[in-house]
Design a binder for these strands. Structure first.
Lengths: 245, 245
DNA sequence: CCAACTTGTATAGTGGAATAGACAAGTACG
DNA sequence: CGTACTTGTCTATTCCACTATACAAGTTGG
């Protein structure tokens, strides 16, 4: 049973060996090579496979145990505690709550903050308004089954959506909130997907180790007439979520 | 001129400070906050902003200079050498060469290797064949203007596409190669997008620093009748490419 | 020319990452 | 029971990331 592919780890690059090893093991778990309850190879075999000292492997495992991904049992071995990665669908009619239905028991969204901002050139182009237009900026976090799944920043023109944060807080759903403004239907214009290391702010809110990878989705929603409603910058923890087109 | 947001950098996490800083600066560049030719803030102001020593900032800059992202001039300052991130469209009819047309002058694909493999349960499900079916596995790298843009692994059923690697090498294009087998049209079934740190193999082939982030696209192409043709696992360097849905 | 900025270089000290080896303590199996 | 495996703990050592300070050397503008 080849538990891990013979991934050789190089010494440097600014990323500690123990972190590279932790990432490699986590990858085998969320990638499906290891399933919940499976027993990991022993520390000594793993150390040999990665070409490092046993203590370096131990540190990597300690991090994954801390994260809740692995579970170590004295004298028996180390086991996979939790494996699955959630899939978030992306399409014309993406709805947050529907997308994850069936994958999680409970879902929730929290508004971190909101404020008025002037449209930069970039935002103005996206929302098809004049630069300097007053926009509402809303910062949110989404949870499912107690784990943070996304950190999003949204912008809407204030003129069309006055008091939006209050309405969103009251309804708890983007779809419902937009209905209050007479928008019965909306769809996704374009989505740009990229990836990068998490910022310290994101790492804090999403409870990630610094240096973790986030998937970034930059989307624009449009109404039935094709007019941009709001633009949304969402960051997903790459080890917990994948996007499905 | 706020060249960089006041991103505070935390000490540890297994990722070196200089790497976190390099990532932060690169993010400002590919994210559009800094454009080609712009002057970066001085090393001392940067060090103060990140809360680190000047030498730590210097090391981060040295890496970006090495990558060709920045250009340092003695006595004058440090400047952005190259900014733009390429956009790779994802849709029903994704064609590699068309997708990047207009963004690059020259494009090329190299076949690294190919071999026969037995379908695992996972691959069998994707290609709608029995587990153990003989598959052709093709490893490729794509370049544009001399820079590596993607590292892909493809699987096709051998029975339907005998000698595929030779045909692909001869035609140089997936679309053309498939025509030889009577497939005039094909489209994308589903695409799953995730992100993670690059493996050492990927870092080598794509010429990335170890610890760099890759976008991973896992797709299935189907013919006009809806039968799976081939499945493709593509890794893009996240700092050079973004995916557009 | 000179003052005030910039990047480049050198040296020295501190703390953490990684290695090495030895041993304690739990579990499984004949 | 006892052997062979496992994870857990300790100590010592080497190497590099990071800090701190100082100064060289290029550029710009008055």
């Amino acid at each position: 049973m080849t538990v891990l592919s013979r991934t050789e780890i190089e010494p440097a690059g600014g990323v500690a060996l123990w972190r590279q090893i932790a990432d490699a093991i986590r990858l085998d778990i969320v990638g499906g090579k290891l399933e919940t309850g499976d027993r990991l190879a022993g520390e000594l075999p793993l150390a040999e496979r990665f070409g490092v000292n046993r203590h370096t492997v131990r540190r990597a495992i300690a991090v994954l145990v801390e994260e809740g991904v692995l579970r170590a049992e004295h004298g028996r071995g180390t086991f996979v505690a939790e494996a699955r990665r959630l899939s978030y669908p992306i399409g014309r009619r993406t709805r947050f709550s529907e997308g994850l239905a069936g994958q999680t028991k409970q879902r929730a969204r929290t508004i971190l903050s909101s404020r008025i901002e002037r449209a930069t050139a970039r935002l103005a182009e996206r929302l098809d308004v004049k630069p300097g237009t007053r926009l509402i900026r809303v910062e949110t976090v989404a949870f499912a089954d107690g784990r943070a799944l996304s950190r999003a920043t949204g912008w809407l023109p204030e003129q069309r959506f006055p008091e939006y944060p209050a309405v969103l807080a009251e309804t708890g759903s983007t779809t419902e909130a937009l209905k209050r403004y007479g928008i019965d239907d909306y769809s996704r214009g374009s989505t740009r997907i990229s990836a990068r290391h998490a910022t310290t702010d994101e790492a804090q809110v999403l409870k990630l180790a610094p240096g973790a990878v986030v998937l970034v989705s930059d989307a624009v929603d449009i109404d039935a007439a094709g007019v941009p409603i709001h633009t949304l910058l969402t960051r997903f923890p790459a080890d917990r979520m994948e996007l499905v087109v």
